[in-house]
């Protein structure tokens, strides 16, 4: 009995400790972001000289306007646009290609089907960073440096997404495909009328993950865009860093990083259920 009482008390104390820990943790996470926000609202001199200010200054509109319209190397508005094109292109392209390849692998018997599947799987399981050198060569030879195609195409093929859709299609009963055949639907009709609408949730979940993936791409755009007008925002931040003894325009850099994290954070927070589902499935 005594033991049980002790346990209840311990549980109460534990709860408080957990809460305290959580509050400290959350503060720990938010403080840096707050600091970045503060830095984006003050003047250059205030940042360079310690201690850093902890309350927002009065230069919010000025700094953001300067970042959006002029930036350091290229206007941030332009970079945001580039990032959007790239993220959407990668997400939509990946989904389209993966859906079609999974469809081919699951529903059509062709010689070497298994071989192709494993080939796709093996080669594309590797992250971009791994296959970057040969890919760079190919894109350079196609003359796609500094272009949207160059930014998007190499990142579109995806084994994980193909695998995901393959798994999903394999759970669709064969009878459904047969019923569609009896109803007179050809393979593509079946794909668009039946398979695609049935995959809606999977597509949405994957879209969220892939949008973030595309938006946060860093190394690839860094390599193939030399023209500041083609820079994406995430790599643009790094490009703003001073080289050598130049002084950095910290308020603009901070404004840019705040702008860079808003879209992905909004997408994740707005579509949490889909995001977690996509994350869990794509890590399977």
């Amino acid at each position: 009995m005594a033991q049980q009482n002790g346990m209840v008390e311990k549980r109460g104390a534990g709860l408080w400790l957990t809460h305290l820990g959580l509050i400290i943790g959350v503060a720990f996470i938010f403080f840096p972001i707050w600091l970045a926000f503060v830095a984006s609202t003050v003047e250059q001199q205030q940042i360079a000289r310690p201690p850093m200010p902890l309350l927002p200054g009065d230069k919010l509109f000025e700094n953001y306007a300067r970042a959006l319209s002029a930036g350091v190397n290229a206007p941030v508005a332009q970079m945001l646009g580039n990032s959007l094109v790239m993220a959407l292109g990668i997400a939509l392209g990946k989904i389209a290609i993966s859906l079609l390849s999974a469809f081919a692998i699951v529903y059509f018997r062709f010689p070497g089907r298994k071989l192709f599947f494993w080939l796709i799987f093996l080669t594309l399981m590797l992250p971009v960073e791994v296959r970057i050198v040969p890919t760079y060569e190919v894109i350079a030879n196609f003359g796609m440096l500094n272009s949207y195609q160059g930014l998007i195409l190499p990142l579109i093929a995806s084994a994980t997404a193909t695998f995901l859709f393959r798994q999903f299609f394999m759970t669709v009963p064969d009878e459904l495909a047969e019923a569609a055949r009896v109803d007179g639907a050809g393979p593509m009709r079946f794909f668009f009328d039946i398979l695609l609408p049935m995959s809606r949730t999977n597509i949405a979940a994957l879209f969220v993950i892939l949008f973030i993936y595309g938006w946060n791409q860093y190394l690839w755009p860094l390599l193939i865009t030399t023209d500041p007008d083609m820079n994406t925002i995430v790599m643009g931040i790094k490009q703003m860093f001073p080289s050598g003894d130049d002084t950095a325009d910290w308020p603009v850099i901070m404004a840019t990083s705040i702008l860079a994290m808003i879209p992905p954070v909004l997408v994740v927070v707005g579509m949490q259920k889909l995001f977690i589902r996509g994350l869990v499935e794509s890590e399977k």
Partner: peptide, 14 residues
């Protein structure tokens, strides 16, 4: 979840 959406470069910057 929001942390997972942060671009790594921004995390680096922070």
């Amino acid at each position: 979840n929001a942390l997972m959406g942060l671009p790594p470069v921004v995390v680096g910057l922070l």
